[in-house]
Design a protein around this nucleic acid. Structure first.
Lengths: 246, 246
DNA sequence: TGCTTGTAAAAGTCTGATTAATGAGCCACG
DNA sequence: CGTGGCTCATTAATCAGACTTTTACAAGCA
């Protein structure tokens, strides 16, 4: 019995029956497999997933709080349409990054980042701690070293550290909460081969400029340099897509 | 009986026993009344709130998905610390705006807005629909009329419409999802007496500039003008706080 | 001291019963 | 023919209690 369990239970429901249902339903809705307006019944879901109503109800409650669906007596649970989704919910973002919506989601995140990071840089210039300054300059050095060596993985790690630290240094929790979002964009860019084999030295210099401006408490310069970073990045991506058009 | 019900039932728990518990716990955590690290037990909460465990469990699950608390077997539910909160969750935002955190929350939102709205303006310049253009220019006219007349309420309504439309016109759902956030900032500013009795005509002209730039498809100009709007607003608030210092 | 084992506490899950809201159909009345 | 109200069936919401599973903690053992 025990031995059998060990054999069969490759990936047993260790502690999360609830999670399975949640992710299953969440992905189904976000991917569009469950069309907006479609109605489901709790009991039906329970039998379909082979779990009790409690589990379904809890998952449904969570999804409802994310705006993915709504429940009404005598009707059932109704899949909500995109307009009411909490598109900032980490789970929703993850589900979208998983499925077909990946490209669209990364585009949204990128545009958002373009607005947030310059402000983060400006705020950081007035609120950064000495420790964070150290991390920032250290990250820039790492970027420089690994960029020259063409070690894109290590470069990415340093890049992530730089941006995460900067967002945290902004002293604004909402901006800091976008760390995961920005990371996704940076990771996605590298893993999609949208980076040149050797990062643009100018880009690294711009990171150094940001660190410098932040350290010397110059919000305007920090904001400007950060805007340059993002402009350069999008330019690099375009060049990558259209190698030498025109 | 029916008459009695009509008398006593001013605002009875119409459909939301769950909501009561959710809001109660949510506010308690967000306000700090329940300190991070504090552990509660489901059964205890059930008796304390006079509801069944199902209700508590569902509320707890939702709060856990917001990062406000976590549950562990044999331990109980633990209040999480701010770092893991989903600060973009609408409920979390609302709870913070309700309680003591109101000022801090508005400050965070304002800084975020400063980053997002210029980008929204730039994006809108390339994606706006003719209808939205009409709404934008209409809103600007309303602002002008009511601003001159000193009708701050009507002015606010037009201002809200302008910004909401612009965010939607950005064509980015994440940015559009920040409509509520931006509205809160604008409403909060007016309701806190941080507006001069007659809105600055220059501010209104800047709104017109944005609308104009968006309509003519000039992202840079739109972005610049929007940045000006926000700069002017924060300047006005400072002047308001320090009437004519120096 | 360090490892194993046992125990109990608490969340997790299941089930069945009951309550209450409400959409839809039906009927009477105009 | 339409309009308002009534009934009724359906479905979520809630409750209550039993059982299962994980795991912190401690007692016991080497």
């Amino acid at each position: 019995m025990r031995a059998l369990a060990l054999v069969t239970a490759m990936e047993p429901p260790k502690q999360a029956l609830h999670q399975n249902v949640l992710h299953h339903l969440g992905k189904a809705i976000v991917s569009g497999a469950a069309a907006p307006g479609e109605v489901l019944r709790i009991d039906e879901l329970a039998t379909r997933h082979g779990v009790s109503r409690s589990v379904i109800r809890e998952a449904v409650r969570v999804l409802a709080s994310m705006g993915l669906l709504s429940t009404r007596r005598r009707v059932g649970v109704t899949v909500a349409d995109r307009a009411s989704w909490n598109v900032f919910d980490p789970l929703v973002i993850r589900w979208r990054l998983d499925g077909d919506g990946r490209e669209a989601q990364l585009a949204s995140l990128g545009e958002l980042r373009r607005g947030v990071e310059p402000v983060a840089a400006a705020l950081a210039a007035t609120r950064v701690t000495p420790e964070q300054c150290g991390v920032l300059t250290g990250a820039v050095m790492e970027m420089s070293v690994h960029g020259r060596a063409g070690d894109l993985d290590a470069f990415l790690r340093a890049d992530l550290l730089f941006h995460r630290t900067l967002l945290e240094a902004s002293g604004n929790e909402m901006i800091a909460a976008l760390t995961g979002v920005v990371s996704e964009v940076l990771v996605g860019r590298t893993h999609h081969g949208l980076m040149p084999p050797h990062p643009n030295p100018a880009a690294i210099r711009l990171h150094a400029d940001v660190a410098q401006a932040v350290q010397s408490g110059d919000p305007d310069a920090a904001e400007r340099a950060m805007r340059e970073i993002i402009a350069e990045a999008s330019r690099a991506m375009i060049d990558e897509n259209e190698p030498k058009a025109r």
